[in-house]
Design a protein around this nucleic acid. Structure first.
Lengths: 161, 161
DNA sequence: AATAGTGATTGCGATTTGCAACCACTATAG
DNA sequence: CTATAGTGGTTGCAAATCGCAATCACTATT
């Protein structure tokens, strides 16, 4: 399928511009859900299995995810590529917009709020952590809990400590 | 229509997550196309008139655009709201991703490249210029050409100077 | 009165969505 | 060895949406 235009914004929209792709990526990134079943049953938006299968396929084709070799019926772990990890700033920008201009759940908003407070530095740190988890990069020396741990702590805190 | 979840990322995806909404916004923002016909005939992706009408309606409902009072057949100028102006970081992030991970047209890529070089400061400056154009904000004191002018200059330059 | 331009709407076939049921395969338990 | 649960999906199907082409109602200009 050839692109509608040579515009880089359009190129990104053609890959990520639908109602589910970025939601799946969000769950892979922030929820560390890397198996089909985890993505399916853990989805708070209630994605259907055929839609999930289709989106995973498209994200694989787009070079955003890779799949650990596994046949049907076997556990197939999905991993982010570098291109997938670099969608984090997009998701970050979307989340900030949603935080400002839409209402929503306080627990889920707390997570985005923490991320915004951390700013671009937090985003970079998160992407580094994802490289360790998904690309087998060497872990950096850290002081204190990593970004993902801090995010889930913020969520837990907002849930009622 | 109630949201699928209270997640701010999902909230943004529900409004902007389709193949055309962000493309229309891009043309309003960077191309300063504020009339139906200008958006229709100027579209490099070739949007259809019914799709454009539908997207404009949705963006109005979502509080991203406003329309100067005008009946059918009269010139109705569309303006960005503050919520609309704050989609710029989203478009910026998408464009940067497209620049890195997709191929495309050199002229259009030059524009995004300039924007990336300018970084967040450029984005802020652009948003300020949009507030002047769309929200009748008082113009700031400027030195040299504004962001939009620099973007179109970059495009013209890449077209073959 | 005729023509061009405005912001759209309508018809209609093709595609996508999303629910439910089912499938092929593997691992575990009895 | 068989039964059951769990894995990553596929299949049918009705409803909604997409997107092309033609057309519409209205205004401004000639």
């Amino acid at each position: 399928m050839e692109p509608r235009s040579g515009c880089p914004i359009n190129a990104a929209v053609e890959v990520l511009g639908d109602r589910w792709s970025l939601i799946v990526l969000r769950d892979v990134i922030f929820g560390d859900r890397r198996y089909f079943r985890a993505l399916l049953t853990g989805s708070i938006e209630g994605i259907a299995s055929n839609i999930l299968a289709d989106r995973l396929k498209r994200l694989l084709d787009a070079g955003i995810l890779t799949r650990g070799t596994a046949a049907r019926g076997q556990r197939a772990r999905f991993s982010l590529t570098e291109a997938g990890i670099q969608t984090v700033p997009i998701i970050y920008a979307l989340g900030n917009w949603g935080l400002d201009w839409r209402t929503g759940d306080d627990q889920l908003r707390a997570r985005q709020h923490l991320m915004r407070e951390g700013g671009p530095a937090f985003v970079e740190e998160l992407m580094d952590e994802l490289r360790v988890l998904h690309l087998d990069a060497a872990p950096r020396e850290t002081v204190g809990p990593g970004p993902l741990e801090r995010l889930s702590a913020a969520y837990a805190e907002a849930s009622g400590s």
